[in-house]
Amino acid sequence: MQVEIKCFATLSDFTPKGGFLAVDDGSTVKQVIDLLGIKAEDVKIMFINGKHESLASVLKEGDRLGLFPAVGGG
């Protein structure tokens, strides 16, 4: 199945070319993060189709996954 992936801030280099990635049916956010070569501890916020989700959330065909690192500031 195909999902759209956008990685933000310090994770932006991990966004796949064209913004889409083919993954197995039933793949979790954690499995996609591993496939992209990102350390799970580097991802602090995950959105699927605009809703906050967890590493265990299962993706479906056509989902949009957004991955964000911890954001610091002050």
Rank of each mutant, 00 (worst) to 15 (best):
L11A: 04
S12K: 13
S12M: 13
S12H: 14
F14C: 10
F14I: 12
T15A: 08
T15M: 11
P16D: 05
K17V: 11
K17D: 13
G18L: 08
G18H: 04
G18A: 10
G19M: 04
L21K: 14
L21M: 14
A22R: 07
V23E: 09
D24C: 10
D24E: 14
G26K: 03
S27A: 14
S27R: 05
V29Y: 10
V29L: 07
K30A: 13
Q31P: 04
Q31D: 07
V32T: 06
D34Q: 13
D34S: 03
D34W: 01
D34M: 08
D34G: 02
L35W: 02
G37F: 05
I38A: 06
K39N: 12
K39S: 11
E41H: 12
D42V: 02
D42E: 12
V43T: 05
V43D: 00
V43C: 01
K44A: 14
K44Y: 09
I45K: 15
I45N: 08
M46Y: 01
F47P: 07
F47S: 14
F47N: 08
I48D: 04
I48L: 08
I48R: 07
I48P: 01
N49R: 03
G50D: 03
G50M: 01
H52N: 12
S54I: 00
S54M: 05
L55Q: 11
L55C: 02
A56N: 08
A56V: 04
A56T: 06
A56H: 06
V58Y: 02
L59M: 08
K60C: 10
K60D: 10
E61H: 13
G62S: 00
G62I: 00
G62M: 07
R64G: 01
L65M: 05
G66K: 09
G66I: 00
G66N: 15
L67W: 06
L67C: 10
F68P: 01
P69S: 12
P69C: 12
G72T: 15
G72S: 15
